[in-house]
Design a protein around this nucleic acid. Structure first.
Lengths: 330, 330
DNA sequence: CTGTTAGCGCTTTCAA
DNA sequence: TTGAAAGCGCTAACAG
């Protein structure tokens, strides 16, 4: 492995000049620069990352902390994030928390120890003292989080839920149920949209609220939905406002032999290719996952150069995509 | 940020002792060790990663290079990989290549510059000179690759395809088609299993082979499958031996109004929760994606400690899961 | 078992 | 514009 010294000797300049020429920071005599580049190429010189990182006190690495990359929503976010981070010359370290505050803490600790340039995270429901773990220097942006102290990228899912509920009501469905996880603060926002739609329609604000937990525990979504649908007066429309619950809900509906649209109106979070393979196809609230990733990446990167003051939020819109499952055919 | 020197001063020992006590490498007097730990805790000392990495000439980072993490198959692999890497104290850098040899090259270059401890990759179809980019010291394990020069983790999908074809034949389907991407070497193995099943059944070895490209280009799977199904003598069973093609194939079938199982027998790669939501549910060849990830991680990690000689392969089995789509009901 | 010391390879003042 | 030189913080010989 040739070092910068080898290059310096070969190009007959000082190491400082090599560094400058190769990084293009300060101006270097074109002729010298060329000599340096040639020497580097001939030696097959590659800068040593750790040495550079030590000296610069930072790295070209970003940490992306999500609950679980096997969820398509987070997979798309990571993809968007990696694409734009990489385009800017940054590597991304992937971290799956399973919403476990301990794992989250450890990931943040690693980010600090390794001097990562920034971190983007979906905070676990339990609040963590982020700054204690990263230092106030490291930019942190949160995704869909309750965090008041850091930049956020968020989706206006409240508005999207409202539109979905309005749509369901306009289709003539009578008893809507909203399936969420109330411990999660974003879900309370969605619930607000749900209620607002009822009020706007002049309906009693009594839309049923189904509380599910997504951990497969005692209140497994499939089990709870099955129970709900067995009710003497079951809902005739479901707004599944949580992507983790969509599949279990559809499974419960399928196993009871209910026909989407005709027997029960359904809208779920989020879109996926297979949802349009079901017959009828499933209506969705689609959040722009990839764009969330790219936006978050741009936001941390921006903090790296321009230290603006105050917290900055970016809100993205979700789309309501109406397909057969929420069209009421007699 | 306190450094190791601060700790040394506070604990009234040398920096070497601090390093030893905190890393547990060499034995240290228990009393001193305790003093060091306390001093470190009181100061909130965190070791500086880049400095350590520079000194050790390696990092606790692994690179995972896959085509696209938004494919559930690769998402599960990454998850398994991250889980076991993290448990061993390693971070993982995620890299999406889109099977682009250039991106692959760049990722390998970063791995070398940053002194990553190892890399696990799904090599792009085009062969890359891996060692030139990583140095012969860095362990590399390939996934599902043609690579003869490095450790491999692979799935015996040939056997699985054979079983699937046998199953389809035993159900009485007459004209099987195997949908693959022939430029990919693993697919030729699968094709061999397909042909073997025909021979074993005493059938003419003339199973149709459908050639698809997964890039959405002129031979988009959906388009090709639609064409195939419009044939005057179309196949009555499809073995979609490539996960990227499964959704397009099912879409083509659905849009032609064919009934799974009854009109056309179908088995696809790989399993996903939604495949059992379709009616009838879809039969699959299921590869153990998560286990592939964990196995690959263990393999690189093993290379890090014990430099065995020669290339080592680990083969995992795929399961045939029969559901309604390959049951021939009249 | 402990301390002293020499760097790892790079960037960046500081002078020239 | 260039070079000399001082470290970044840590680990690993090497001596004691």
């Amino acid at each position: 492995m040739p070092t910068i010294d080898d290059v310096a000797v070969k190009a007959q300049v000082s190491t400082a000049t090599v560094s400058r020429a190769l990084n293009g920071k300060s101006s270097v005599d074109p002729e010298l620069a060329e000599r340096v580049r040639r020497a580097a190429a001939e030696l097959g010189y590659q800068p040593n990352g750790p040495a550079r990182n030590l000296r610069r006190k930072t790295t070209a690495t970003l940490s992306l902390i999500v609950p679980d990359v096997t969820h398509p929503f987070y997979a798309s976010i990571s993809r968007g994030f990696e694409d734009t981070a990489r385009a800017a010359g940054y590597s991304v370290v992937l971290c799956n928390t399973d919403d476990d505050p301990d794992k989250e803490r450890r990931y943040l600790e690693v980010a600090r120890q390794e001097c990562f340039a920034g971190v983007v995270m979906c905070p676990a429901p339990t609040a963590t003292q982020i700054d204690d773990l990263t230092g106030p220097t490291t930019p942190v942006v949160t995704l869909d989080g309750a965090c008041e102290t850091h930049d956020r990228v968020l989706v206006d899912s409240r508005a999207a839920v409202e539109r979905a509920a309005v749509h369901l009501i306009s289709q003539g469905y009578q008893r809507l149920a909203c399936v969420i996880e109330p411990a999660c603060h974003t879900d309370t926002g969605r619930l607000a949209g749900f209620h607002r739609a009822h009020r706007a329609a002049g309906r009693a604000d009594d839309g049923q609220v189904v509380v599910c937990r997504a951990d497969g525990g005692p209140s497994d979504p499939y089990v709870m939905l099955t129970a709900l649908l067995s009710d003497p007066a079951p809902p005739d429309a479901l707004l599944v406002a949580r992507h983790e619950l969509a599949e279990g809900a559809l499974r419960a509906i399928a196993e009871r032999g209910l026909r989407l649209g005709a027997d029960i109106g359904v809208v779920v979070f989020d879109d996926a290719p297979w949802l349009s393979l079901l017959r009828p196809a499933v209506s969705v609230v689609s959040r722009p996952a990839y764009a969330i990733g790219t936006t978050a990446a741009r936001q941390v990167l921006a903090r790296l150069t321009a230290k603006s003051n105050g917290v900055e939020d970016t809100a993205l819109q979700a789309d309501l995509i109406v397909r057969g499952s929420s069209i009421r055919v007699p």
